[in-house]
Design a binder for these strands. Structure first.
Lengths: 337, 337
DNA sequence: TTGTAAGCGTTATCAC
DNA sequence: GTGATAACGCTTACAA
């Protein structure tokens, strides 16, 4: 059984108050006392109980990061940066994946969970309905949203300009002279923000270029996975006339598309150019390397953690929106080598 | 200010005991009481405070998963499976990355951290010295080790047979008629278990095949990253005679090696065959697809969680070692298409 | 079946 | 500067 403050106090012949002072580095303790206490701590191998401290102070020192799937590179790279940024401010990170489980999202957002040992919630929806957010209202759990762009002033928000990012990607393809530009990643059945916004950007860019948006070119993808990218691209490339460019709503989809192009006998970028969004590291090593729109993930992570900690420290902080920069990163899959 | 059990009890005109019974689903409560309490809970929007419960019960319901870097695909895929397996048993997962920070590892292992809000520690060292483990002795924090293979009976351990896995990979290259087989991923300066074991398997396989182990073919890699794989492979392929096969200690190194081979004008597998270890999903979509030795990550995760939960429930459970299966997965990078 | 009360191990508010 | 002691919000003997 681990030693408690009281045990230390008894052994050192002082009050618990004094021990607590020593342990938490309080300034005004005489050197003699401090020595005595330290000896007792050493002898009993005392370690403060973080749960008791938490109950008393109301702070767990833990943040929750909620992502759809942690093994999607974009999210694991985001998680890396969030964990580092949190550590810098003295916080640890619990990670939860909602998969495509709306019930789990609901629980987290509503605080309907019996094990919410965290001070704030970083919520990074890839495909999440905005109604869910309305339900968060009653809880007092600090919340920062990551990645979408639908600010209504109620929540802190580190956003990406999805419409513009998609527009930039497609405009790049247009500037290369491509005219039959397909897209992979739409979500016709559900009202998810990210795919909706990227679809809007895609269509706007086509319009701005005077190109026709063919319905059969806007291809859905249930998950933003390599496999779905592969399947969608295979289907697209078997149509006639085949597209001469594919804009994928994520780099992971694009990785699948690259492989599909190869397997279907298409050269990239000669026959078909491919571009994604995210700038995951994987895309720098594909063959050909993957053109993309880079999101400033470290900034997103840093800002998100900064905001949530500010809100934890002062719940009345007004909600704020930060829009992270993005930039076009052309590589071999559109430019050639 | 959130409502407490007491508030609910007051409003419902019952004792806290009764409210607690209702909240925690105790069997013997009259329907009338239950109704009254539920109404009060509803009205006050009461949610139990998990920290108080934790202090009382001694259980946080949280596990810590410690990995070097969460954005390394092998670890993010492991994390996905660990989170899922933990959820199944009612646990949540806090993730920490030690980077290559030995001090952080020391803290975690020693329980020298003021915010250890978890019931058990899943420790997955890629490159970690075993001395660190000796220091865990004094703590009572349940610990399960993942991935190495140096069982001394003190800790639960879900292991990989690294020596055999490496041997299998190299034997596959030998069976293809390759004779100048290089390796990427050794760690000559430090005594890390994984690289040491994989090096041993590599050398044994060469010996068994009657091939000479050339020192210049055993190439170190500081991190198991794409970039280091690229650099190491580029160097290897510029020697003369160049190797006709490269065994990489991880798939991520192999991804870098594939790209390096291409950039150096080598065809894979015709000029040089490449094989890795891990079977990350990325390797199924590279061009050519990556031969590898698959580790049974879901099993590793499931077993690890099962063991740690068993130990949390009963600290006196004897330590146990499980060795996860591995199997050779030949793909285009050794077989061709 | 329900009420009363004693902790869980801290921190913080008083006195001294 | 240090010592008692009351919370923090919950679970659970023990009583009734």
């Amino acid at each position: 059984m681990p030693a408690t403050l009281r045990d230390v106090a008894n052994l050192a012949q002082v009050s618990v108050r004094t021990v607590s002072n020593v342990v938490s580095g309080y300034e005004h303790v005489s050197e003699r006392m401090r020595q005595k206490v330290m000896r007792a701590i050493e002898e009993l191998d005392y370690r403060p109980n973080p749960v008791a401290r938490t109950l008393r102070t109301g702070r767990t020192g833990m943040l929750a990061l909620v992502v759809p799937e942690i093994d999607v590179p974009y999210f694991s790279e985001l998680a890396r940066d969030v964990i580092d940024a949190a550590a810098e401010l003295g916080y640890r990170v619990m990670i939860d994946q909602t998969g495509h489980d709306h019930e789990r999202e609901r629980q987290l957002l509503l605080g309907d969970d019996r094990t919410m040992l965290f001070d704030g919630l970083l919520f990074s929806p890839l495909v999440t309905k905005s109604e869910l957010l309305d339900m968060h209202g009653t809880t007092s759990m600090p919340l920062v949203l990551l990645g979408e762009h639908e600010f209504d002033g109620r929540y802190d928000h580190v956003a990406i300009n999805n419409v513009q990012a998609a527009h930039d990607a497609v405009s790049h393809l247009v500037s290369l002279g491509r005219t039959r530009i397909a897209a992979i990643g739409t979500q016709p059945l559900e009202e998810y923000a990210t795919p909706l916004q990227r679809t809007a950007g895609y269509e706007a860019a086509l319009r701005d270029a005077g190109l026709e948006a063919r319905p059969e070119h806007a291809t859905p993808a249930a998950h933003y996975s390599r496999a779905d990218g592969y399947a969608a691209a295979s289907a697209l490339l078997s149509t006639s006339p085949a597209p001469d460019a594919i804009f994928c709503f994520s780099d992971l989809l694009a990785v699948g598309a690259l492989r599909a192009a190869f397997d279907s006998g298409f050269r990239v970028p000669d026959d078909v150019a491919v571009i994604g969004i995210d700038d995951i590291e994987e895309g720098r090593f594909t063959q050909p390397s993957l053109s993309t729109v880079a999101l400033d993930t470290p900034l997103i992570a840093r800002e998100a953690v900064r905001r949530i900690v500010a809100r934890i420290d002062n719940p009345d902080t007004p909600a704020e929106e930060v829009v992270a920069e993005h930039r076009l990163v052309p590589r071999e899959s559109t430019l050639g080598s």
